[in-house]
C-alpha cells in the first residue's frame, strides 16, 4: 500500500470506537426521505445524527423515518437540540439512550436564541451530570479554549467546537481559535460542528488537524444534495491528506519556484 492509500485509510475514534469516515452527517432538512438516504450513502458517513420530539399518533409516531435510518445501518448519534436547561438536556439524553440504545449523546444546550450559541456554563454542568450517568458525551461548544479545557478535565474524549453558528454556512469564522484547541489537546478527538457551508470549509477543518466535521444543512440544503455529499467526501479526504502531508512554511516575501540560475541574459538587470 502506498502512502496515499495509507493516509486515506487512517482512523479516528469516538470514545474508543474506531471510525474511517471523518464526516458525521445530519438527517434533517432534505427535500425528501429518498434524497436523505442517498445523500447519506454517498457521503460514506458512518455516523448519522437524529433527535427526539413529541410523537403524533396521527403520523404513525415517526416510524417511517426511523425505519429509513435503520435501513442505512449507520451508527446513531442522538442530539439534545433545542434544550435550554440542564434538566431538559439530561432528560432528553436519558430518553435518547433508551430509544436509540446508545450511550453517545451530542450535547446541545442553547444559551441564546439569536445565534443558537451553546451556553458554556450550563454545558459544562450538564456534561458532568451525563458523564457521571455513564454517557459518552460529545459536547457542542464554542471555540473557547478554557471551556474546552473544563470539558476535557471532566473526562470528555471528544469535543465539537463550532465553526460558525448553526445553519449559517459561513465556514470557520475563527481558524486561530480552532487551531489553538487542536494544539492544546492533541489527545482529544476534535470535530468541527456547525457553520460549515462548503466542501472547502470542511477541507480547512481537516487541514487544521481536526479529526472530523459534523454537518447537515450544507448537504441537505444544497441544490443537489447527493452531489454535494460526494463533494464533501472528496474534500474531507483532501483536507486529511493535506494535514498529513504537512503544509509548506508560510512566508511574507515572494520566493521564485522556477530556478533563477541560467536565466537568459536579456532579462538580467
Amino acid at each position: 500500500m502506498d502512502n496515499v492509500n495509507q493516509a486515506i485509510s487512517d482512523t479516528w475514534s469516538i470514545y474508543g470506537t474506531e471510525l474511517s469516515s471523518r464526516l458525521l452527517i445530519g438527517s434533517a432538512l432534505y427535500p425528501s426521505p429518498a434524497i436523505m438516504q442517498e445523500s447519506i450513502k454517498q457521503s460514506q458517513a458512518e455516523v448519522v445524527t437524529v433527535s427526539l420530539r413529541r410523537q403524533s399518533p396521527e403520523s404513525a409516531g415517526g416510524q417511517a423515518f426511523w425505519q429509513q435510518i435503520q435501513s442505512l445501518g449507520k451508527k446513531i448519534l442522538p442530539n439534545t437540540a433545542g434544550c435550554h436547561s440542564i434538566q431538559e438536556a439530561v432528560t432528553l439524553a436519558q430518553m435518547s439512550r433508551e430509544i436509540f440504545d446508545t450511550d453517545w449523546i451530542k450535547l446541545e444546550l442553547v444559551g441564546d436564541e439569536y445565534n443558537l450559541q451553546p451556553d458554556p456554563i450550563d454545558l459544562v454542568k450538564a456534561t458532568e451530570i451525563l458523564l457521571n450517568d455513564g454517557f459518552k458525551v460529545l459536547p457542542y461548544c464554542t471555540d473557547d479554549l478554557v471551556i474546552c479545557r473544563h470539558l476535557v478535565e471532566l473526562g470528555c474524549e471528544v469535543l465539537m467546537p463550532w465553526g460558525a453558528p448553526i445553519g449559517t454556512g459561513k465556514g470557520l469564522l475563527n481558524p486561530y481559535a480552532l487551531s489553538a484547541i487542536r494544539h492544546r489537546f492533541p489527545q482529544i478527538s476534535l470535530v468541527v460542528d456547525a457553520g460549515i457551508g462548503l466542501p472547502s470549509h470542511a477541507a480547512q477543518a481537516l487541514e487544521l488537524g481536526y479529526d472530523a466535521v459534523l454537518l447537515n444543512s450544507a448537504i441537505a440544503q444544497a441544490q443537489d444534495p447527493v452531489m454535494m455529499a460526494k463533494a464533501f467526501k472528496s474534500a474531507i479526504d483532501a483536507g486529511r491528506l493535506g494535514y498529513l502531508g504537512g503544509r509548506m512554511p508560510e512566508k511574507d516575501t515572494a520566493n521564485p519556484s522556477t530556478p533563477t540560475l541560467g536565466m537568459p541574459f536579456w532579462h538580467q538587470m
Binding site: S27, A28, L29, T49, R54, G62, N79, A81, L92, M95
Partner: peptide, 10 residues
C-alpha cells in the same frame, strides 16, 4: 406526560 419518538436531527 411526554411521549417522544425519533425525528430528523442535525
Amino acid at each position: 406526560i411526554d411521549v417522544l419518538s425519533p425525528v430528523q436531527g442535525g
